[in-house]
């Protein structure tokens, strides 16, 4: 088989006919996640876009079983499923909690903290589209500074930085945390496969652009995700046991943040207040410096960070 750019399994566990919006990277993220995990998987999905995406009650969009659960319960429902399957002798099944940013950063955080602290043997994945998209683009604590949402109007856009969910999880000393985005599918798959072999609580923060919610044409979503990585808005990294930090990738050239912002209507108003763009740049810079410091602490060098144009 020849596929020049990618080494990905052709096995599809996402079926066609799901009803995600055009250009939804939350759908692509699931497709990639299940390419990595295979079909010995059970999924718990709380209230989120995927409640709708997977279809009407009588139909199903995945080749793996899904239990729909309440908004704040993805982590604990997955814990229960894992316990139930274990008791029924199905110990090798990977149980995946698959939630949006609202269900993770906000309402679900308590159950996540509980499951993380107990080191439950599940994978928790948040596909983060940076607002409550399914209910109509309301602000969540994952909404970035400066963004428009229907509850942070352009006249008074979001004025808090995005909650640093990764650091919260790192403080729980869980065995594995990874940040991924479908724009880098091999990085995504490599981390999923790595996580699959680890026992205990594994956390995936998946950056998932949402064309309608970000006021962006549907064909831009992969590009937006790529730009988020290139501009360091969303660094790709791994944290092991809450201590070992690895920045996987740094784009070898400086990419202006504006390139990322201008793709998206939700940041349109920011160009009238350039000082706010500077605030974001400062946040990004500080966060990156912190991560580099942690990376250095772990590896003694930053030379092992991949610095290629085309990172997979």
């Amino acid at each position: 088989m020849i596929m020049r750019n990618w080494q990905v399994p052709l096995e599809e566990n996402l079926l066609e006919g799901h009803v995600a919006c055009q250009g939804c990277l939350g759908a692509l993220a699931m497709r990639l996640m299940l390419k990595g995990l295979g079909d010995n998987v059970a999924v718990a999905i709380p209230a989120c876009c995927w409640t709708i995406i997977s279809g009407d009650v009588l139909y199903h969009a995945l080749k793996v079983p899904v239990f729909h659960t309440a908004f704040e319960t993805a982590a604990i429902a997955a814990t229960g499923i894992k316990a139930g399957l274990t008791m029924r002798g199905k110990k090798d099944t990977t149980v995946l909690a698959w939630a949006g940013d609202g269900g993770t950063f906000d309402i679900g955080l308590q159950a996540i903290s509980g499951a993380a602290e107990r080191n439950e043997d599940i994978i928790y994945a948040v596909y983060d589209n940076e607002a409550y998209m399914n209910t109509g683009i309301q602000r969540s604590s994952a909404t970035p500074y400066g963004a428009w949402t229907t509850t942070t109007p352009a006249k008074r856009p979001e004025d808090k930085p995005k909650k640093d969910i990764i650091e919260i999880l790192a403080a729980h000393r869980v065995p594995y945390i990874a940040t991924v985005t479908p724009a880098y599918p091999e990085d995504f798959l490599r981390k999923v496969k790595k996580a699959k072999e680890i026992k205990g609580f594994r956390f995936f923060h998946i950056f998932s652009p949402c064309p309608p919610g970000w006021k962006m044409p549907s064909d831009y979503s992969v590009q937006a995700a790529r730009l988020a990585v290139q501009t360091k808005v969303f660094p790709l990294l791994e944290i092991e046991n809450g201590e070992k930090y690895t920045i996987n990738y740094e784009y070898p050239k400086e990419v202006p943040l504006e390139d990322y912002l201008k793709l998206q209507g939700r940041f349109k108003h920011l160009f009238k207040t350039p000082e706010k763009i500077e605030v974001i740049k400062e946040q990004i810079k500080k966060r990156w410096e912190y991560l580099v410091m942690r990376h250095k602490l772990t590896h003694g060098t930053t030379d092992n960070i991949v610095r290629k144009v085309f990172y997979k």
């Binding site: 020849i2 020049r4 990618w6 990905v8 996402l14 066609e16």
Partner: peptide, 21 residues
């Protein structure tokens, strides 16, 4: 088309399949 696979890999709808490269 030199079979890079981008279209296949990035399709959120699994609507592109990879047939004979």
């Amino acid at each position: 088309c030199n079979s890079c696979g981008n279209c296949y890999v990035f399709c959120p709808d699994a609507a592109i399949s990879w047939v004979d490269d």
